[in-house]
Amino acid sequence: MSFKILVPVKRVIDYAAKIRVRPDKLGVETNNVKMSINPFDEIAVEEAVRLKENTIADSVVAVSIGPKESLETIRGSLAMGADAGIHVSASADMQPLGIAKILKKLVEQEKPKLVILGKQAIDDDSNQTAQMLAGLLNWPQATFASKVVVDKASDKVTVTREIDGGLETLEMKLPAIISCDLRLNEPRYAKLQNIMKAKKIVVPTKTPEELGVDVSSKLKIVSVEEPAKRVGGSKVQSVDEVVANLKKHAII
């Protein structure tokens, strides 16, 4: 059986862009804001591509669920070395449960041995999709991975994961779900030649309806506000003044 890896990738506001709450207070401004692949998802793509380069995996499929611009995120993943892409058209603000339900359907169709995801998207910061997908599939999960070792002969994967205060190692029978933490790898920059090649790959678009998935959500965002502004900006002239201020704040 061929060893396929599915990697979900999300298009998010670039990590370096300034976040501005929309005037209607129902979300943040995304018009004319730089968008990029979610940094944790980029790590997931890198890990999958490395498993292919190390002849563990046979193919890597990048999936993005969102508006048509999500195709750019898939193209970026193809340029990094993914073999194929699937786009599922949906609104940009879908909740993780709906995303996990769509991914479950795609897993049933694509039959991957591993699904590697970013641990969280830096827009809604949910950190839920990998765990939810594992729950829906009743597969083992290793979240916050910092090292992945696949043993094809025994059909197992050993994952070192970041826990509070240290590391934990789990062994999972394949198929399995992995979510990536920052230390797992350093994603490559795609070469121009690969970016050009990626443009030629045909990426099919599916809809949640075609997949037979109900993505309605019982969570509703009623408002989005800016956090309380910090009043900073006061300066002192010396180390002694720093200490005096810390005493004033009863810290020392």
């Binding site: 765990q131 594992a134 999960q141 916050f144 509070d164």
Partner: peptide, 20 residues
């Protein structure tokens, strides 16, 4: 990392959304 790891799995198995 303890709570983040299993709470969404619980939610999915109850077929409900989760709040992080």
């Amino acid at each position: 990392n303890f709570g983040k790891n299993f709470i969404p799995r619980v939610a999915a198995n109850l077929d409900v959304s989760a709040l992080s």
